[in-house]
Nucleic acid binder design. Structure first.
Length: 579
RNA sequence: CGGGAUGUGGCUCAGCCCGGUAGAGCACUGCGUUCGGGACGCAGGGGUCGGAGGUUCAAAUCCUCUCAUCCCGACCA
């Protein structure tokens, strides 16, 4: 492509709307433009990057035996009512009406549509396994879209759905997708981790997220420093070690009520008693489909709601407003404690070994000191309820866990029969028995993968695209358009690069050299070739690598070293796992 | 949904408090000079100041409503 002919509106200044690196750089590099909150247009450069990721995805999905389809974006409400998600999915589902006032939605995901399709198509175990995928625009009406393509409302997703005869076969499909995903993100040149995750609203029993490590990421993951264990913080567990608790001697007969005016938070209470938060127990009221309950954890720990919901076996869980707690239960938020409460008491497994504790007295302005497990309160419902943190022990090997931030770019789920049951998607097995299809679903955020790649690869001059997804692999800068020899050489090299199938942007604009350098850096072209009058006289072409800043002088009359340099770049940063 | 902020040429912003002919830089067009890290000079084009209503002789500026966008929060007592 000739730069002079390309619609590539780079910006010197950063549009005020952009906060995070990838968003800023994608705007500045002329890749995307915003139309509305969370809704973006792709310009030519952005689309090239997107297509490169799509192509890698297609290759790996096809290699894994999946077949591409294209499903409708607009879906009738009946299907969603049949699966039960019309009500459950909530406001994220963009609902629309047609001219006859019939309800539709713009698909945020396609379990319903694909299951409907398959239940009409698949009758026999002979047609299985089957894995269909598509790359398509989704819409999720996010509460708060932000960060450009990282959390958009309209976005492009690759979603795949597998259908198998039983759990074991579905496990194989899942594993195949897991391998494919590892190859996809490796080939995109990303530093990522596959982590165990909660399956959330999509449902199912088991899932892994693929998280690109980046400080600006919205997700946190816990990973072991020595073994392979890695999990989303929502899901992560830690090893629990029983310790003997030393009690003071003699032990007081009962806890002591102390006036603690205006001490509502753990920090304030710790300050008041001159103790660390570890000596305090934090009590919180939760409400679920099973009613109210009180959750008790060490004061220096954060409650993990997903673990609470799992421990309770609850469908949904939320924290009621303090006013509601006061009205319904007569309990004062800020001064809660586990003594003498009538509702379910759910206690974190670490609490019994805390020794003498401080907790709220269930009376405004008072806390209890010297509280003891068993003497003062107890519960049969004990579990791991807290969020892991750096320094906790790996549940597999006992080494230290570390916490990193990252961007979720892929998520794979074992769905089981959740949707096939609701939509009655069945087949006949070898014995002629009617059985439910066992499903899995597998998603990749395509635009988000591009954004994540930028989050992970940039410097003060702009984007440093990994070779595999770079819109252009080579930028050829002609610094002296007026010189016939220089221009003739550049034109010839440009043609040869194109003939070799190397995507190249030839900067033939009538601009000063500085402008060309800045633009080539900004748009993240991995290899920059520069030729000016001086270089031409010396018979050399300057080749500079964007990511390493290493430059070499190549002879004009022999291009073999150029081809080997490109070869090297192409293989260098696509870290394909060996397996 | 709660809180905060912002809407002025394509972009970044000033002007608003204290009402009186709409500005700068970048970008764009033409000419000239310049030419290896976002050049300079001269001459130009382009804005119903987010929208609606109101106050006023007069509104970008004051008032009311509305729309849009961004940030924080919407669970850690």
């Amino acid at each position: 492509m000739r730069f002079s002919r390309m619609h590539l509106p780079t910006l010197k200044e950063v549009p005020a709307e952009a906060e995070v690196v990838s968003h800023r750089l994608m705007l500045r590099a002329g890749m995307i433009r915003r139309l509305a909150a969370g809704i973006y247009s792709f310009l030519p450069l952005g689309l090239l990057a997107l297509r490169n990721v799509e192509e890698i995805i297609r290759q790996e999905m096809n290699r894994a035996g999946a077949q591409e389809v294209l499903l409708p974006a607009v879906q009738p409400a009946e299907l969603w009512q049949e699966s039960g998600r019309w009500d459950f999915y909530g406001k994220e589902l963009l609902r629309i009406k047609d001219r006859h006032q019939r309800d539709y939605c713009f698909g945020p995901t396609h379990e319903e549509v694909i299951t409907d399709l398959i239940r009409h198509e698949v009758r026999s175990y002979r047609q299985l396994p089957l894995n269909l995928y598509q790359i398509q625009t989704k819409f999720r009406d996010e509460i708060r879209p932000r960060f450009g393509l990282m959390r958009g409302r309209e976005f492009i997703m690759k979603d795949a759905y597998s259908f198998d005869v039983d759990d074991a076969a579905a496990g194989l499909s899942y594993q195949e997708m897991r391998d494919a995903y590892n190859r996809i993100f490796s080939r995109c040149g990303l530093n990522f981790r596959a982590v165990e995750a909660d399956s959330g609203a999509i449902g199912g029993s088991f899932s892994h997220e693929f998280v690109v490590l980046a400080d600006s990421g919205e997700d946190a993951i816990a990973s072991c420093q020595s073994c392979e264990y890695a999990a989303n913080i929502e899901k992560a567990e830690s090893q629990f070690i029983e310790v003997e608790t030393a009690l003071p001697d003699p032990v007081a007969a009962a806890a002591l009520e102390v006036a603690t005016p205006d001490c509502e938070s753990v920090a304030e209470v710790a300050d008041f008693f001159k103790v660390t938060p570890e000596a305090i127990i934090k009590s919180m009221i939760f409400e679920s489909d099973l009613g109210f309950c009180m959750v008790v954890v060490p004061g220096d720990r954060e409650v993990n709601e997903i673990k609470v919901a799992a421990a309770l076996g609850a469908e949904w869980l939320e924290i009621p407003a303090p006013a509601r707690v006061a009205d319904e239960l007569g309990l004062p938020v800020g001064y809660l404690g586990p003594l003498n409460v009538s509702i379910t008491l759910l206690v974190d497994r670490q609490v019994p070994q805390m020794g003498e504790m401080i907790c709220g007295a269930n009376r405004v302005g008072f806390h209890l000191q010297g509280v003891l497990w068993e003497r003062d309160f107890t519960s049969r419902q004990m579990a791991d309820l807290v969020q892991v943190r750096a320094g906790d022990l790996c549940p597999r090997c006992g080494s230290l866990l570390q916490i990193d931030r990252g961007i979720e770019v892929g998520h794979i789920f074992k769905l089981g029969t959740k949707y096939s049951e609701k939509l009655k998607a069945t087949f006949l097995d070898q014995e002629g028995q009617e059985r439910l299809l066992v499903m899995g679903c597998y998603g990749v955020g395509v635009g988000r993968t591009v954004a994540a790649a930028i989050e992970q690869n940039y410097d003060e001059n702009g984007i440093c695209f990994p070779y595999a997804i770079a819109p252009f692999k080579v930028a050829l800068l002609n610094l002296d358009l007026k010189s016939e020899e220089v221009t003739a050489y550049c034109e010839n090299l440009y043609q040869e690069l194109r003939n070799r199938g190397i995507s190249v942007i030839y900067d033939d604009r009538n601009e000063r050299p500085g402008v060309k350098f800045k633009d080539a850096d900004l748009i993240g072209v991995p290899l920059r070739l520069t030729l000016g009058r001086k270089g031409y006289k010396r018979g050399i072409l300057e080749a500079k690598c964007r990511s390493t800043s290493i430059s070499e002088e190549l002879p004009l009359d022999d291009r073999t070293s150029l081809w080997s340099l490109l070869e090297e770049l192409a293989t260098d940063d696509s870290r394909i796992p060996s397996q």
